[in-house]
Amino acid sequence: MSKLFAIKQDFTLMAILLIPIAVAVNFVGGSLALALKLPLYLDSIGTFIVAMLAGPWVGGVTGFLSLLGVSITDPTSLPWAVLAALVGVVVGTLARGKMFLTWGRIISSIGIIVLVSVALVVIMRFLFFGGFTTSGSSLVAAAMMTAGMPFWFAQVLSSIVSEIPDKTITVLIAVFVIRSISTRTLLKFGTGSIFAEYRTARKAKKKAAATPVAAGTTN
């Protein structure tokens, strides 16, 4: 666990160079989702990839910087910088805990990420904007309340509906990208090496399973 708190060691040159790219990926992902008229944000793919490759602190910085950049054109998104940073830290911590290696773990990681972001969205929306903003999920919440649902229930449910598809697709794309990166490149990143080690271990296992006779004769 002590490795988790070694903030300065996380910011290697490779990690630092990755941050601007990840912020740009967030921007491009968000605008591509808009261009393809998808009903999702998909503006945190870069943050997730960085968090998986370089750990929670670099992931947090990436999320924060991304929203800071968005705020230049839309100042109302400034408070969400805190949310993006915290989600980055959560993803990075999960990655360090080897939670993105197998499909079972990936699914539970998605669950944790959705839970954390729903909680943060609801709390922050209440703290900064009194519970209502102009976002789609907030308007859904307002509609639910007219239908007679209690305030918090409507807030949580509307956020869950918008967060589940968004975070699921984001995690899946991030995992797909990580799996496509060569082992040689993965090894250059702090947390990325976890994925590389897993990959080589699995390959060795497969090899051993494929050639049991050869393995038996060498013993």
Binding site: I19, P20, I21, V23, A24, V25, V28, L65, G69
Partner: peptide, 8 residues
């Protein structure tokens, strides 16, 4: 970051 976004 600022320089890389238009490039991307």
């Amino acid at each position: 970051t600022v320089n890389i976004i238009p490039q991307m």
